[in-house]
Amino acid sequence: MASSFAACLAAAVQGPVLWLRESWQGDTLNPVGFLPVLDPVRVLLAHPANQTDALAVAEEALKDGAVALVVLEITRPLDLREGRRLQLAAGTGGTIGLCLIPEGMGSNAAETRWRATPVFDPKHEDSTLMRWEIIKNKMGTFGAWNVCWNAQAHRLDLVSPAGE
């Protein structure tokens, strides 16, 4: 789902990636799973105790600019002030911030919002076919693409125009 979107974005930027998830969450990220997309050495993991700490750390990292991408997994919706602070911090530091949200928890402050869903590919085995839809865009129009990670060329392949 969204983790592979984050991984593809991390592969596209240069520099370290800070991945924030609250410490109580049961599942773990598997660095070996990242291998085809990006080198896990670039990933720094932070485990804050609660979402307030996670937001504070995210703001600090976005403002600082030492990392190229901040991935934040949230478990409760952001209010207007929190979203705006993160957006201002990202603007100051020139860092990309990506919030992995459960359905319907998007913040108004976000520049873009994407929905990434895996798609069953009947033709190819070991396929990584995904459908990426842009469902909010402050600067442009919406769109949808079917994409697939090409591990040899280390890039995204556009599979076919979305049939809509």
Partner: peptide
């Protein structure tokens, strides 16, 4: 390293991890 220190002062240096 400075960023890790600053994050560490808030959430504890042992909670900033790498694989």
């Amino acid at each position: 390293a400075d960023l890790i220190t600053r994050i560490g002062t808030r959430i504890g240096l042992e909670n900033v991890l790498r694989f």
